[in-house]
Amino acid sequence: MSCISSTMELFNETTDLLLSKGLEVRSPYIPYLQEVDMVERQHFLAGWWGKQRPLTAPEITHLYSNIQTNYMGTAVITGFTQVVNSKEIRDYFSRGKEIAMKQIKVFSKYLHENNLPVPITWDPLVQDTTETPFSDKLMLYQISIMSAAGMGNYGTAISASPRRDIGADYVRLQGEVGLYAEDGLNLLIKHAWMEKPPHAVDRDELMKKKI
Results as ranks from 00 to 15, higher is better:
M1I: 05
S5Y: 04
S5Q: 11
M8H: 06
F11K: 14
T15P: 00
E24L: 15
S27E: 14
P31K: 09
D37L: 11
M38L: 15
Q42V: 15
F44G: 09
W49S: 11
R53P: 01
R53D: 09
P54K: 10
P54Q: 07
L55S: 07
T56Q: 11
T56A: 03
P58S: 04
I60H: 09
I60C: 05
T61S: 13
L63Y: 10
Y64H: 13
S65D: 10
S65L: 08
I67Y: 05
Q68S: 15
M72N: 10
T74A: 02
V76M: 11
T78G: 01
Q82T: 04
V84D: 02
S86W: 09
S86I: 00
K87T: 14
K87S: 14
I89T: 05
D91Q: 13
R95A: 10
G96K: 07
E98N: 06
E98K: 11
E98I: 04
E98G: 02
I99H: 08
K102I: 02
Q103K: 09
I104A: 02
I104Y: 01
V106L: 05
V106I: 12
F107Y: 15
F107D: 02
Y110Q: 03
H112Q: 14
L116Q: 09
L116N: 06
P117N: 08
P119Q: 11
I120P: 00
T121S: 15
D123E: 15
D123T: 14
P124I: 06
P124C: 08
T129K: 12
T130Q: 12
T132E: 12
P133D: 05
P133H: 08
F134I: 01
F134T: 05
D136S: 03
K137S: 04
L138M: 07
L138V: 09
L138S: 07
L140P: 00
Q142M: 12
I143P: 00
S144A: 12
M146I: 10
A149T: 09
M151K: 12
M151Q: 12
N153V: 00
N153Q: 11
Y154T: 08
T156M: 06
A157N: 04
I158F: 10
I158D: 04
S159E: 13
S159T: 14
A160S: 07
A160E: 12
R164L: 15
R164P: 00
R164V: 15
I166M: 06
A168I: 06
Y170V: 10
Y170A: 06
L173K: 13
Q174F: 12
D183N: 10
N186V: 01
L187G: 01
L187S: 02
I189G: 07
K190C: 00
A192K: 14
A192T: 14
W193V: 02
W193Y: 07
M194P: 00
E195N: 10
A200Y: 08
A200C: 00
D204T: 10
L206K: 03
K210S: 07
I211L: 14
